Amino acid sequence: MKKVSIILPVYNGEEYLNNLIPKIRNQQLDMEIEIIAAVSKSKDNSLLVADNLCDITYSVGNFNHAKTRHEAVLKSSGEYLVFITQDITPFNEYWLHNLITPLLEGKEIVATYSRQIAYNESSYTEELVRKFNYPNYDRVCNKNTKVKWGRKNIFYSDASSATTRAVFLNLGGYDFEIETNEDVIFALNVIESGKSILYNSNSKIYHSHDFRIREVFERYKLIGSFEQKYKDQLKDYSSLGEGKKLLFYLTTALIKKFKIKELFLLGIDMPTRYIGYKIGYKKAIQRNYK
């Protein structure tokens, strides 16, 4: 029987694990499932809970978005690798089957990622953001679709993604240190290798965040720093146009629903993203000249 290894970074995740792991075990999949929990130092019982529920559990000294995931892969044994975050919830018992199946059907698609649906308690704005980024139709992305999809051509999320072990390791995996967007680097490597990524709308999870303004600012500082560091690789994938499309989409939808409070908050949120991005980008340039 083939095996799929689920790579799961954990931090203060006790409440998530008790809900998530049984739903993973309940997936309708004709493969053995192996769950590897990489647990960072937490204030709750994450390590104990993970040790009871997962197949391989170990403590992480210094968490890094890329390196930690790569080290977890090296502890795994599955032919297929699935990367998730602790705060997702599978939409149904076919999430994993639908995510993995395209990898079995041919050699062209070597990486897939799931459709994300906002949790019921999320704001209407966050619901719209998820619909904008994760529509109800598939996207196949490769070297030939750069113009068609723009920045979405390398949009990829390891909140729920899958690839084969062979492809992951052959492309270098996550064997590097980075503060954010490790999944974008992997997507770039897949595209440049001549293979395809599938945005897989049939594989669905619940996943969303209503960030505070300070959290938004810090998040986009990291994104700005990332985009400056990898500006050469990203030169064909401008994020500015995608940001404008998102702003127009959100503003139009909120006006139609007469969501005055959320329009006001959007008027704070979007400039905060832009300012954070610019500061992060500028600081990265300054670091390069030191």
Rank of each mutant, 00 (worst) to 15 (best):
F83M: 10
P22E: 15
E14V: 08
T68E: 05
V129E: 15
V140C: 01
L20P: 13
K2D: 13
V190L: 07
R287P: 01
E192A: 04
D138R: 09
N62S: 12
G78V: 09
L104T: 11
L250F: 12
N170G: 05
L47K: 12
E32P: 00
V110A: 00
A111W: 11
V140N: 03
A187I: 00
L188Y: 07
L47A: 08
N200Y: 01
K3V: 03
R151C: 03
S208M: 07
V110E: 08
Y137C: 06
N98S: 06
G276R: 01
E105A: 13
D55M: 02
Y281Q: 05
Q86F: 10
I36S: 06
F132K: 07
K283Y: 09
F186Y: 13
K43A: 04
G267P: 08
T164R: 11
N52K: 15
E71C: 01
F168I: 06
E79Q: 15
I24Q: 13
A253S: 15
P90G: 04
Y230S: 03
Q28R: 15
K221G: 00
K43V: 10
S59E: 14
N19E: 15
I268K: 14
E242Q: 09
L250S: 07
L104F: 15
R287C: 12
Y237R: 04
I100N: 10
